[in-house]
Design a protein around this nucleic acid. Structure first.
Length: 584
RNA sequence: GGCCCUAUAGUUCAACGGAUAGAACGGAAGUUUCCUAAACUUUAAAUCCAGGUUCGAUUCCUGGUAGGGCCA
């Protein structure tokens, strides 16, 4: 519809004013207080044409009315040209299958999640996972998408939890404690920190400076020793490392399943950091990087407006970026993607600038295909989540809490009471997941968002529940229709009311919304759209009978419209990684 | 100290440079003999400040202020 209008309006400008409308031509929806469906604004051309806005709009309007069969009337208000589309055309457009994309255009690798194996997943990870997953789903309409995860499974922080377990673990395992693996390991990480702090305080009271104490604390020295042993391939350390990491992976898997997240390929930092090191050393020998007197390797980015950046520590151990270099190369060689997307928080904006530059300097022309999909932090009302202060919102706890709340509401309202135990539980889980996913995804990714644990996530208003409810309502109507042996079929020529018109226009919008979401990497566009569609339908439902409409032709139309809306809601939900349910 | 990001009702979010800035929650007032009230209707309430560009600025530019982040 949009394209068609654009073409014809461009033609109108050419024929009437011998002028290319160009990029200035923007079609928007007519505001509700005016008559019309689509609006263009002729102000941009007033200077060139040297006529009044009203005159220009009038001319274009006349041209369209005379030359385009689908325009039924137009109105000019100031510089705005409001066009009305023939109902028949709207019906055709709204009910045809949306052609989102014909062929897979590009190969895209998208990395998201990227957890550390020393801590359980929290709300920040949830945002990352949901964004990555939804964007993959959206892009899959246009491209061949490969979802990858990079697990940060090595380094000093991992050794800390290993060391603590070794010292104080008493042979605890997820099996014998019934504690989820990632939680158990996380507990030991916290324990390390606690004991480490005690040692620091002890040393300070013995006259050490804070800095000295932090370096000299025996626990820290032991952890560092463990890391060295790990890097040398010490068998005992490696066995412990493998065991504990496996606990964590099992734990993560449970959470991923709850969120409906899967990956096509998992990379481990322990398998890529050596490769990264090789490239850093290669760059050093080629004079791309330089070495400081202590032996550390750096890259000078002052020419590019940045600082010098450390690539390899003095003791030869690698830093974050070292392994990112290795992983990028590995990934490129494996998939030869046209584009590599990294879904990583905006705290790492600088890091990715550096990564791109470093890869460029190493001569990888594909470095420019890297796109850092940067998203804002999830904050609490009192500020950042801090694990030390215990304010981190744990992913599993949050999901459990939401399920509990959904259950209470369902029991109280008597919903789902006919369902058997399993269907009921499944329904609750899906409702809770939808509420969480929608809550996170409706916010523009680049913005920081606030999460209030007390108020938690709403089940009323602009929420995932509302969307699911609308869908279930329509399913209920359609089920009743089929019970009454009413066949949903195309109606004959029909007059439609304003609400129906609004709904048709929204349906026509769907493919454009998906395209916009894809080009902006922004699932919030889909979320806003589906909310708008659901709200519009609920209002419609309230004011007009659908199944109970007596005129069979109108009833037919209303049923087929409802069916189409349900289908579109479901599509949107699926793009957000949300599963719909037929009853609630 | 250098660089980056953000700023919209009491709160959480919308609004390709376009018409009277939309919603939700919360507040106030209503709607169940009728297709699911997790819904619907009515109502009060906002663009951080000062300049600039433009026919037109919440949106773009400059300078403040406040918050967040990154690099030392």
């Amino acid at each position: 519809m949009n394209e068609l209008l654009k073409q014809d309006i461009s033609k109108a400008f050419e024929q009437s004013f011998n002028l290319a409308a160009g990029n200035e031509l923007i079609i928007q929806k007519t505001r509700k207080e005016f008559i019309g469906d689509y609006t263009i604004n002729v102000f941009p051309w007033v200077k060139q044409i040297r006529k009044s806005p009203e005159e220009i709009a009038q001319t274009i309007g006349n041209y369209l009315l005379n030359n385009c069969h689908y325009i039924s009337e137009f109105q000019v208000i100031k510089g705005f040209l409001n066009l009305s589309i023939r109902t028949q055309t709207l019906l055709e457009q709204a009910f045809k299958e949306p052609t989102i994309s014909q062929s897979k255009q590009q190969q895209i690798v998208i990395e998201f999640s990227s957890p550390n194996t020393n801590k359980p997943l929290h709300l920040g990870h949830i945002r990352n996972n949901l964004l990555g997953n939804s964007i993959s789903l959206i892009l899959s309409n246009f491209h061949n998408v490969i979802k990858v995860n990079l697990i940060n499974d090595r380094g000093i922080h991992i050794c800390k939890s290993m060391l603590a377990w070794q010292k104080w673990g008493n042979g605890q395992t997820p099996e014998n404690t019934h504690i989820k693996g990632d939680k158990l390991v996380g507990d030991y990480y916290v324990l390390f920190d606690k004991e480490y702090k005690k040692q620091i305080e002890q040393l300070i009271s013995n006259g050490y400076s804070k800095e000295e104490a932090e370096k000299k604390a025996p626990l820290m020295l032991e952890a560092q020793e463990m890391l060295r042993k790990w890097e040398q391939g010490d068998e005992k350390v490696h066995n412990l490392w493998k065991t504990m990491n496996q606990w964590v992976y099992n734990g993560f898997e449970t959470t991923y399943q709850k969120l409906g997240i899967t990956f096509d390929k998992i990379y481990y930092e322990s398998e890529t950091y050596e490769l990264g090191k090789q490239y850093v050393l290669k760059g050093l020998s080629e004079g791309i990087f330089f070495q400081k007197s202590d032996g550390s390797v750096w890259v000078d980015l002052t020419q590019d407006g940045l600082d010098e950046k450390l690539l390899l520590r003095a003791d030869g151990t690698s830093v974050y970026i070292t392994q990112d270099i290795g992983t990028a190369v590995l990934r490129y060689n494996e998939f030869k993607p046209n584009r590599m997307i990294y879904v990583v928080g905006n705290e790492q904006n600088y890091h990715f600038q550096v990564l791109k530059l470093v890869l460029n300097k190493l001569g990888f022309s594909w470095a420019n295909t890297i796109y850092h999909l940067s998203y804002g932090m999830v904050e609490l009302p009192e500020g950042k989540m801090k694990s030390r202060e215990g304010t981190v919102v744990d992913a599993d706890d949050l999901i459990a809490e939401l399920e509990h709340e959904a259950k209470q509401i369902a029991l109280k309202s008597g919903k789902l009471k006919d369902a058997d135990e399993i269907t009921f539980q499944k329904g609750i889980e899906k409702i809770a997941a939808a509420a969480l996913k929608y809550f996170i995804l409706k916010v523009d990714p680049e913005k920081n968002m606030t999460f209030n644990p007390q108020e938690s996530i709403d089940f009323d208003g602009n929420t995932g529940t509302f969307i699911l409810y609308t869908y279930a309502r329509i399913q209920s109507i359609l089920n009743k229709a089929s019970e009454q042996n009413i066949v949903v079929q195309k109606p004959d020529a029909i007059d439609i009311n304003d609400k129906e018109r609004e709904l048709l226009l929204l349906l026509i919008d769907f493919p454009y919304v998906v395209a916009e979401a894809a080009s902006l990497f922004n699932p919030a566009k889909i979320a806003n759209y589906v909310y708008c569609l659901s709200k519009e339908f609920n209002q419609y439902y309230q004011s007009y009978p659908i199944l109970k409409e007596e005129n069979a032709n109108i009833r037919n139309f209303r049923l087929i419209l409802s069916q189409k809306i349900a289908k579109t809601i479901k599509r949107c939900c699926n793009l957000l990684g949300i599963e719909t349910i037929d009853k609630m």
